[in-house]
Design a protein around this nucleic acid. Sequence first.
DNA 1: CTATATGAGTCTCAAAAAGAGACCAGCACT
DNA 2: AGTGCTGGTCTCTTTTTGAGACTCATATAG
Lengths: 136, 136
Amino acid sequence: MDSKIVSLRSKLEIYKAGSGGGNIVDCPVRDVIQGISNKWSSLLMMALAEKPYRFGELRRLVPDISQRMLTQTLHDLQRDGYVHREVFPTKPPSVEYSLTDLGRSMFGPLHQLLQWAELNHGAVRDARAAFDATET
Amino acid sequence: MDSKIVSLRSKLEIYKAGSGGGNIVDCPVRDVIQGISNKWSSLLMMALAEKPYRFGELRRLVPDISQRMLTQTLHDLQRDGYVHREVFPTKPPSVEYSLTDLGRSMFGPLHQLLQWAELNHGAVRDARAAFDATET
DNA sequence: CTATATGAGTCTCAAAAAGAGACCAGCACT
DNA sequence: AGTGCTGGTCTCTTTTTGAGACTCATATAG
């Protein structure tokens, strides 16, 4: 585990030192991460990892997302190559969203993080309560 | 204690079945994930995983974050228990931020995701280019 | 025949969040 | 006396998000 952190350390050193070449602002990791670190992306990935869903199904599955943000988030996930969008010529045409291979590949590590969240929800909730208590 | 920790999959199944038991809106995973899935959290975690930093150091390390968002993101990370904030009584008082045990624990899976991003940056960039090409 | 519903969005407008940059305090150095 | 350093906060503007009406072609109900 320490070795992984060391590899990241050298990344940071490189970007820090890079007045001429690399800048942390242009970091490729940031470029990819910013596409999935928003309010709805991981939730939709989580849903689609289970099975493909249609637009309306996702909307009912995640009742507090607005249609506007559902459209936009799916569009962004599709653009980054995580999600495949397929239109079926039914009489009211239906659209199915599913994970691509790249999406399934990304969901591997994402799922680890989701599992951590599930396991440590209690610890985080306690930390919040303690912090809010000392703040008041 | 939270004895009712349910697996991610069964959460979804429960919602689909339409029973009154579980609602995805109150999902504990969402509660935790939304705290770290924003523009700056993972980046600051990445920096602090390397070593503790002071406020001004972080600001220089991430030059495109505003002081306002740096303050706020660090505050939120501290509230959730990932980051420890320590004030040193130097002559202009300095403040050091470091990861807590919980923070290091969370950075494990997060680091997997960051590594995935580093490895697959090319694939994502290509997907974007292809998508933008067919869109025009 | 008219009324209403459906699926997958788009459009508009209001609210919330983020970004830019000035300003604050105390102390050291010049 | 002026400047810089520290770690912020305050205010203002721009961007992003949310809420909700509207589209369009077809289907079914009354």
